[in-house]
Computed example of a mutant assay.
Amino acid sequence: MSGYPIPAEAVEWSEEIKKSRFITLLRQVASPEQAKAWIAEVRAAHPTARHHCWAFVAGAPDDSQAYGFSDDGEPSGTAGKPMLAQLMGSGIGEIGAVVVRYYGGVLLGTGGLVKAYGGGVGAALKLLPVATKRYMVSTFLECDYGDLGTIEHLQGLYEGVTEAAEYGARVGLRIRWPKEHLASVQALACERSQGRIMLRPTDA
Rank of each mutant, 00 (worst) to 15 (best):
1 M>G: 11
3 G>A: 07
4 Y>P: 04
6 I>E: 09
6 I>N: 06
8 A>M: 03
12 E>C: 11
15 E>W: 09
15 E>I: 09
15 E>G: 11
15 E>M: 10
17 I>H: 06
19 K>P: 05
19 K>Q: 13
20 S>A: 03
21 R>C: 03
28 Q>F: 12
30 A>M: 15
36 K>E: 15
36 K>M: 13
37 A>N: 10
48 T>F: 07
49 A>R: 03
50 R>P: 11
50 R>S: 15
54 W>D: 08
54 W>Q: 09
55 A>N: 00
56 F>Q: 09
61 P>Q: 05
62 D>C: 04
63 D>M: 02
64 S>P: 10
65 Q>L: 12
66 A>K: 03
70 S>F: 06
70 S>G: 02
71 D>G: 01
71 D>F: 02
74 E>L: 02
75 P>A: 01
75 P>S: 00
76 S>K: 14
78 T>Y: 02
87 L>W: 03
92 I>P: 03
92 I>M: 02
95 I>C: 05
96 G>K: 12
96 G>D: 11
97 A>K: 12
97 A>W: 13
99 V>R: 01
100 V>M: 05
103 Y>K: 12
105 G>P: 04
107 L>P: 09
107 L>G: 10
109 G>D: 06
110 T>L: 04
112 G>S: 06
112 G>Y: 05
114 V>F: 00
114 V>R: 06
117 Y>H: 01
118 G>V: 00
119 G>S: 07
120 G>L: 02
120 G>W: 03
120 G>K: 00
122 G>W: 01
124 A>P: 03
125 L>Q: 02
127 L>H: 04
129 P>K: 08
135 Y>V: 13
135 Y>R: 14
137 V>F: 05
137 V>T: 08
138 S>L: 13
142 E>K: 13
143 C>E: 08
143 C>G: 07
144 D>S: 13
146 G>L: 12
147 D>R: 11
150 T>S: 07
152 E>S: 15
153 H>N: 08
153 H>T: 10
155 Q>W: 08
157 L>R: 15
160 G>D: 04
162 T>I: 12
167 Y>T: 10
169 A>N: 15
172 G>V: 11
173 L>F: 04
179 K>C: 11
180 E>K: 14
180 E>G: 10
181 H>T: 11
181 H>V: 08
186 Q>E: 10
187 A>K: 12
189 A>E: 00
189 A>Q: 07
192 R>Y: 13
193 S>R: 01
193 S>C: 00
194 Q>F: 13
196 R>Q: 09
197 I>S: 01
197 I>C: 05
198 M>E: 14
198 M>T: 15
200 R>W: 08
201 P>Y: 02
202 T>S: 15
203 D>V: 12
203 D>T: 14
204 A>G: 13
